[in-house]
Each structure stands twice: as structure tokens, then as C-alpha cells.
Design a protein around this nucleic acid. Structure first.
Length: 224
DNA sequence: AGCCAGGCCTGCC
DNA sequence: GGCAGGCATGGC
């Protein structure tokens, strides 16, 4: 499988990143919405606020006063939209899933994904993050880092989210734990490199990463 | 001071 | 079906 070695390289560099950091599946879902185009540091503060006020449950958020909720999640930015999105998700969980998001597990992957995507404010990345990290569906999470990463390494230039995801599903043989870590590793790796030259491979392949690429002798095999 | 962060929706073409 | 613009805070 073409992507298995790439995963090994990243794993040797960064290890098990233990994503997603959360105590409950619902906390994963809330974090997935709050982190939309937002630094995780800002999200953590918001989640802490929700925990302190004992609102980090579907009922807690559904019944909470909007203005109070906005204040609690303010640090995560876009708080007007995100307030609405959290309310919509919570209402769906209460009314269709008996108050527990884990009940999405009674559907297969395709159906569960469609149900999440039908909610306003949940797009593909957010849905897949919830499916993978909260519900243990084996699905690869794509983001802007991933598309950029694959393009730089000449693994492929994908024109859409689904195209990239399908490629990984075909070319990566990892189990669910590996799927969880694979996305985390790509994010972690990309965060560490030069953003000012988005196409520059040299900005991407320094430090230990290069060492492992050579050790695994895969530098040419990145080309499909 | 200015750019960016683990996107998504809407309106236009 | 692609693309720009809007959404907002906090860290570097």
C-alpha cells in the first residue's frame, strides 16, 4: 500500500499523538465545530468554560441561554455561527439520537455521514472528524494541510475533498487507530514547516523527516 | 502590526 | 461546480 510507508515515517518522527483529546464523544463533536478555522489553543479555553459551567452535554447546550453560550465560547472566534451550530447539533442529538451521539453508530458509515452533513454548519471535515474520533468509524479526515502536504510530496494533486479521501482509503491499510493518528501526524508535521513558500519542497523536508525518508528509501516512491 | 488558525455558508457566475 | 467574501478571537 502506497501510503503505509509515509505513515511509518511520520510515526517515527512524532509518535502516537493521541488524538482526539477529549473525555467524551460529545466533547469531540463540540471541539470539531469550535476548531473550524481556529487555533486549538483558543478552542481549549472555550471547552474548559463549558466544563466549568457543566454545559458540555447536548441538553446543557440545547437549553443554555444564547448570549451566555456565546460568552463561554468567545475565545474560539466566530462565536455567533458556532453558537448556532452547537445548538443545531445538540437539538439533533436530543431529538433523533435519544440524547447520545453514539447512537449514530447504529447506521453504517455512509448514512451516519449523510446525517451529520445534513446539519447546518457541519461540512465534510467536521463530519469526518466526528465519525472517526468520536464514533470510531474508519474514515480519513482531509483538511487544507493534507491537500497541501500531498501536493508537495507529489503524492497527488487532488481537486476535491472526496477525491483525496478516496485515494487514502484505497492506498492506506492502517487500522482505526492508525487512521486517527495519520491525520493528526499530517497536521502536526505541517504546523512545523514554512508557510511562506507553499510550493517549496525544501521548506517541507528538513530535520528528522528527511532522515526517515532516506532511511525508508521512499523519496522517489512519493511519485505516483 | 499583520498574518494565521485542525471550515462552512452564501451569493454570484 | 468553482470562487470570493464574511465570520472573530488570541498567539506569534
Amino acid at each position: 500500500m502506497k501510503l503505509d510507508r509515509l505513515y511509518e515515517i511520520l510515526f517515527h518522527n512524532y509518535g502516537d499523538l493521541k488524538w482526539w483529546p477529549a473525555e467524551t464523544p460529545f466533547e469531540v463533536a463540540v471541539g470539531a465545530i469550535l476548531t473550524q478555522n481556529t487555533n486549538w489553543n483558543n478552542v481549549e479555553k472555550a471547552i474548559e468554560n463549558l466544563k466549568k459551567t457543566d454545559l458540555l452535554t447536548p441538553y446543557g447546550i440545547y437549553r443554555s441561554d444564547e448570549n451566555m453560550l456565546k460568552k463561554l465560547i468567545r475565545s474560539a472566534g466566530f462565536y455567533n455561527q458556532k453558537c448556532e451550530r452547537l445548538k443545531i447539533l445538540s437539538e439533533y442529538i436530543i431529538k433523533d439520537l435519544k440524547g447520545n451521539i453514539v447512537n449514530l453508530k447504529k447506521y453504517d458509515l455512509k448514512q451516519a455521514r449523510e446525517r451529520l452533513l445534513a446539519l447546518k454548519g457541519i461540512g465534510k471535515e467536521t463530519a469526518d472528524s466526528i465519525l472517526l474520533y468520536a464514533l470510531d468509524f474508519k474514515v480519513f479526515v482531509v483538511d487544507t494541510y493534507t491537500l497541501n502536504f500531498f501536493e508537495r510530496l507529489k503524492i497527488g494533486k487532488f481537486s476535491s475533498y472526496d477525491e483525496c479521501q478516496n485515494y487514502v482509503h484505497e492506498c492506506f491499510s492502517g487500522d482505526i487507530k492508525a487512521y486517527k493518528n495519520f491525520h493528526a501526524l499530517i497536521v502536526e508535521h505541517c504546523k512545523n514547516f514554512c508557510k511562506k513558500h507553499p510550493k517549496c519542497i525544501d521548506c517541507f523536508l528538513n530535520s528528522k523527516f528527511c532522515f526517515w525518508v532516506e532511511k525508508f528509501n521512499v523519496n522517489v516512491k512519493f511519485n505516483r
